[in-house]
């Protein structure tokens, strides 16, 4: 419709609907929302459980400093490891232990300034409802071995 126009039409939602609809993406979105409605609560509960397991395990390692307040959290755990710069720790975790994580400022420099970690950042593990207890324990063990 109105293919002769050289500009997008002014009327909404027509203005945003030029071209062929991405039907596979829309079908995927519908499937994802359906899955979320059925499984979302349990998925979030599993993620919290795994994050708590990870936090407790890391807290038990003397040379690890957890960042952030203790208490309920999402599936993200940031920390510093004594004698390891965060980017080096991430390098070792990935290439020696096969564990992928992020290190640095995580595109949040002001937050790191508030936390006092703006110089080198932190290591950050992320878990989800798909993460298993075995995977969490492997991550904890890797950090423990790095601090021996």
């Amino acid at each position: 419709m109105h293919s002769e126009l050289t500009r997008q039409p002014e009327a909404m939602p027509l203005r945003l609907e030029a071209g062929t609809s991405n039907a596979p993406a829309l079908a995927g979105l519908v499937a994802a929302l359906s899955w979320r409605r059925q499984e979302g609560a349990e998925f979030a509960r599993r993620a919290r459980t795994m994050a708590e397991r990870l936090e407790q395990g890391l807290r038990s390692i003397r040379r690890v400093r957890l960042i952030g307040a203790q208490g309920p959290r999402l599936g993200v755990v940031s920390f510093c490891v004594e004698d390891w710069e965060p980017d080096e720790a991430a390098l070792v975790l990935r290439h020696s232990f096969g564990i992928v994580c992020r290190a640095g400022l995580h595109c949040a420099p002001l937050m790191h300034r508030a936390l006092g970690t703006e110089n080198r950042g932190t290591v950050r593990f992320s878990v989800s409802g798909f993460t298993t207890a075995r995977e969490v324990d492997s991550a904890i063990e890797a950090i423990w071995r790095m601090t021996r």
Partner: peptide, 11 residues
């Protein structure tokens, strides 16, 4: 040299 890592690391 961290020989006891699954894949040894060196610095």
């Amino acid at each position: 040299y961290y020989a006891d890592f699954p894949r040894p690391y060196f610095r």
